[in-house]
Simulated scan of single mutants.
Amino acid sequence: MNWSDKELIDGCKRRSAKHEEYFFKKYYGYVMGISLSYAKDRDLAQEIVNDSFMKFFGSIKSFEEFQSVKSWLRRITVNTAIDFYRKNKKIREQLEINEQTEVFHEVNALGDLAYENLIAILDQLPDDQKLVFNLYEVEGYSHKEIAGKLNITESSSRVYLARAKAKLRKLVHTHLKEYAGR
């Protein structure tokens, strides 16, 4: 079957199992890709995927035709990943930090890395740093928005991001040295 998104949405609104199954199959890879950028492993990503689709189907009646299916599904998936993070991991004690933060220079070596290597490097970040990095750099949230979503301070969000970038810099440098040595 080759249903359009509109036909799929209409069928999902009627709770048609066939339409829901086809929608799931059509967008599974897209949602899994987003989930993998927030989860440490495939099992956690699969939980995020399942919860995202459950939320999507549960709220399908509020979907408006003028909305983009992909952007709505992306927002649900990102919010589900954030909810998962909040629910399954106690946020460490609030960081007491100085207002002074170290400024780091950007590394432009990421272009030399294969996608799989980049994902493996990102997976080495602590969960809180990876989450803030993705929300800020990939999704485009501000530190104020991140702080609100994660129940942390804006300055903690900045620190997590700075630490993530510093660690990524070291990991990329190490990876490139290993790659050059081959």
Rank of each mutant, 00 (worst) to 15 (best):
K170P: 00
I91M: 11
R158A: 08
V159Q: 13
H19M: 06
A81N: 02
L118D: 04
F23R: 08
L176C: 07
S156D: 11
I121Q: 01
S157W: 06
R86M: 14
G181Q: 13
S59C: 10
F104Q: 10
D51V: 04
I121E: 00
R182M: 10
N98S: 15
E7V: 00
Q67P: 00
S16W: 01
D41W: 03
S155N: 15
D43H: 07
R169G: 11
D41M: 01
E154F: 06
Y141T: 00
Y136W: 08
Y136R: 12
Y179D: 11
K130W: 02
I119P: 00
L110E: 15
L36V: 06
Y30L: 13
W3M: 15
T153C: 04
R14C: 04
P126W: 05
S59I: 05
F66R: 13
I91F: 11
K165M: 05
D41A: 00
F63D: 09
Y27A: 06
E65S: 13
N117V: 02
H175F: 15
S71Y: 13
Y136S: 07
I152G: 08
E64T: 05
N2M: 12
Y28K: 09
W72R: 14
L168W: 01
S37H: 08
D10F: 02
L168Q: 01
R163F: 04
D83E: 14
K70F: 05
E65Q: 10
F133M: 05
M54E: 14
D123W: 02
R74A: 14
A39Y: 04
A39C: 13
L73K: 02
I76P: 04
E47F: 02
V103S: 08
K6I: 10
I91H: 10
N2L: 13
G11I: 04
N50V: 11
L150N: 06
R158F: 08
